[in-house]
Design a protein around this nucleic acid. Structure first.
Lengths: 346, 346
DNA sequence: GAAGATATGTAAAACGGTTTACTTCATGGC
DNA sequence: GCCATGAAGTAAACCGTTTTACATATCTTC
């Protein structure tokens, strides 16, 4: 028998009381209960090893203490820090995480949202796919609060947690200008509708415009080969110098780094490299790579904290919270010119 | 109202039939139903946007289609590949993942196991903490099947999925001997009770014994500083040459790599470096690092496959399945001597 | 045309809790 | 001695499904 056959009735019987009273006990309503009865129930629970069946509880209760978390790819470094952050709060607030992987596919995403709502999650934390905002109208009819990660989609029904990558990018670009880089080259994936991606590029455009400079760029696809990048960069460097290569798309950084093979010895003096999201290898590669760092763990914590506050009634309306980024200065941007070394909050 | 107020009764009413029939429909038992009725139910479900309440379903059904997954640290590269592998199966088999992070703490682990069983998960996949096997006797009374990851704990109640790192280590050591490394140095954390860690070191000892060699070693703690390692290695290299440094503890590899700063130019000619678990940075660092690779994604898939088979009755008894490792040959072991290049299954 | 057999369907009892509405008893005040 | 109050406790309804056991109508078969 997979099911534990000791129910609230078993306990009530053993404690010589009613299941109502046991239920009260379980929910911490001790007022209507004598010291004596309480102890009998306690003993009965202990000897029977009784554990309440959560499904039954969910049935006529509002809350299941489950939080649905739907991410594009649970395996990448963004996601796993997010999950850790969420977990940090759920553990102390007694929630359970139900995990879904949308694989950046809005069909699967929708499927997961439906299933999770049906199984009774109290709320959702979702890193939405591109298409999601279109479905936004349905959010109000969803019935549960939802927190979006890194999305610009607003509605009356959803909270948001994001990072201010625009400011960070601007500061980084300014600092690099100050360090002596004169020319900028952007290697990036098509930002498409993704506002968070646009922020990263617009932050840099803003600075360059102010400095009266322009910025060459190459659009990367997920299947762009290192050779293609290398050719483009070679051609670019034939005409320019003191170039800062900016790679705002974090999954593209390894490919770019590989493509730069022949230029590595030019880093950081002739060519600088600025990426997004530090990982083990950006720190340990030689040269190590300067990156703009999003506070991902904190983002997860914030998202779950918001959800928890909404569910407990502490927070009435949907919230938007933007977190500041950090710049992790490493060897790939010229350290020998004046400027901060190490990590800097902005 | 957070709850969707359209129930099976709403549908039954609209379809002018009984909720029993609707329930049958929902569970695919069409035999007892006229074409006509079926269509009416279909339409009613569609117009009401009815979605069955999973909690109610769980109540008197054996299965909740939830699988509990408890890992030491959901954020590391081992875990997230595991989760991806599990997710790959759950998606097609219609299970939901309920995630827990034990933080390698057996108290938290136990708490999660209890909570998950109470909430009705059909089965568990657990990367057990060291202390867990002691609690092993309780497994039989748990009521749900459990699959252990990378653990030697056997009982009549649990299945296991692991990787054969011993064979892989042996093969790698043999290959390195053949490539000309004469001296071996092991930098490792205390294996303690962890049999999977012991396998990694015993694999190498076996080979060296056969070759009539011994192996110096330094025990690393989680707080060992790079300087300390550097000093030890310097001293060792003063007396030895053609040394292969073997780091079987994957979290220690970056620290060791950092500590080897001054010796990096000696790699791979004078000093070789062999690690465990390839990651982005072991591939992209210069020189890139040869590692023994566990098929982690496949491990996750296998674990969930086993669980699913047990739950569906396809599999009667607990299973143990060991997966073969791979060696990812990179620049840090002398490639210019004869031997395979690239990745090799063993 | 009576006796199954078959097709179609349903009422009611689970499932294991929570919540509501009600009871009983003791106490105190006047 | 009567009423109000509060303390301690419980029976029964309810949550939304599944499942069991039974009902009815139609079709075969002899």
């Amino acid at each position: 028998m997979p099911e534990n056959s000791v129910t609230i009735n078993t306990v009530a019987q053993l404690a010589r009381t009613s299941k109502t009273t046991v239920s009260f006990y379980l929910n911490g309503k001790f007022e209507k209960m004598s010291e004596e009865t309480r102890r009998r129930i306690e003993r009965a629970i202990e000897t029977t090893r009784y554990r309440p069946n959560l499904a039954a509880r969910c049935l006529n209760r509002k809350r299941t203490k489950m939080a649905g978390v739907i991410l594009g790819d649970v395996a990448n470094s963004f996601s796993n820090q997010i999950v850790r952050g969420i977990e940090n709060i759920t553990l102390q607030e007694d929630y359970q995480i139900v995990l879904g992987n949308s694989n950046y596919d809005s069909q699967i995403e929708r499927k997961y949202i439906e299933r999770m709502v049906n199984m009774g999650v109290d709320g959702l934390i979702v890193q939405p796919t591109l298409q999601f905002p279109d479905v936004g109208k349905k959010l109000e009819t969803l019935g549960v609060p939802i927190v979006f990660l890194d999305s610009s989609a607003r509605s009356a029904a959803n909270s948001r947690v994001g990072t201010d990558s625009r400011t960070a990018t601007r500061k980084a670009a300014e600092a690099c200008l100050a360090r002596g880089y004169e020319d900028f080259l952007m290697l990036t994936a098509d930002p498409g509708q993704l506002s968070t991606r646009k922020d990263r590029t617009s932050g840099i455009s803003e600075v360059l415009e102010k400095a009266g400079k322009t910025c060459a760029s190459l659009l990367l696809r997920s299947d762009t080969k290192p050779d293609e990048i290398a050719a483009f960069v070679t051609e670019h460097l034939r005409l320019n110098r003191h170039t800062l290569i900016f790679v705002p798309t974090c999954w593209a950084l390894p490919t770019v780094y590989l493509a730069l093979g022949n230029f590595r010895n030019l880093i950081p003096d002739t060519v600088g490299l600025l990426g997004f999201d530090n990982t083990e290898w950006t720190r340990f590669s030689v040269p190590s790579i300067t990156t703009i760092v999003q506070p991902v763990y904190e983002e997860g914590r914030t998202a779950m904290r918001i959800l928890s506050d909404i569910l407990s009634g502490k927070q009435e309306k949907p919230v938007t919270r933007m977190l500041g980024c950090t710049i992790s200065w490493c060897e790939s941007t010229d350290l020998r010119l004046p400027g901060a070394a190490g990590s800097a909050a902005i």
